[in-house]
Write a protein that binds this DNA or RNA. Sequence first.
DNA 1: AGCACTGTTTACAT
DNA 2: TATGTAAACAGTGC
Length: 276
Amino acid sequence: MPELPEVETVKEALNEKIKGLKIKSFELYYEPMIKGISPQLFKEKIQNQTVQSLSRRGKYLIFHLDDYYLLSHLRMEGKYFYEGPDSELAPHVHAIFNFFNNDQLWYQDVRKFGTFHLYEKTVNLEEMPPFQVLGVEPFSEQFTDSYVKERLQNKRKPIKSLLLDQTMVCGLGNIYVDEVLFRAKVHPLTQSFKLTEQEIKDVVKYTVEVLDCAIKLKGTTIRTFSSQHGVSGTFQNELRVHQRKDETCYECKTVIEKIKVGGRGTYYCKLCQPQK
DNA sequence: AGCACTGTTTACAT
DNA sequence: TATGTAAACAGTGC
């Protein structure tokens, strides 16, 4: 569930559930998910730490502990489950936070792509991997037409690839990029430097609008098996092109096409988003 | 049955 | 340097 709106939704849910809870122990069943530090050290450091709050940067979830920032990326399939003491362990749970109140937080990830980083709170997170390459937040005042215009200069890759790349603006993934480009009426293969001022303006506008709407709807739930306990948002009802191959465009009735852009499945309307 | 696909990022190739 | 591709992994769907 991991584009910005889904991570934001998880953040909100976890803030309700685990804020103020103290970690009694940490169980880890897939060591490669811990980055930049040994799994043993990771366990030792977070033991007896209290969760002060959670925040989000791009698609990263940040646990603010007493002395550390714990960064969690859900990648393709990562999910959190807050469970009581007697729950029967679900499949694909790779990490468990045990709290002193005897409840537990599971990290489940079928594909094992998710990652944890741990940093002392004394560091400047923005300078640390993986944040040091992250672009601006879509809801920040830094995300402006002129900023995007400058960053598009002499970029020869397709606009879709550039928006998926997290180094200009962070938080967009495959679903929301397709939806933003449809609303901005820009063909996904358009070379980035060729966007007109108006198109740039619309891409910025709809990036904010689509993400904001998706957050209000608590994200998108597709591939339904994934939504059992976790987040079940309703933005899937707002999708205009994504996953609508061979269905007709709501605007013009043209059949939605699916192509590959930068290796990612890409949905668009060839009439509403003409290639120039 | 086998292969291509999947809400992501990175390391490495060219 | 900038852009493109493969790889990490497991499950689903054609």
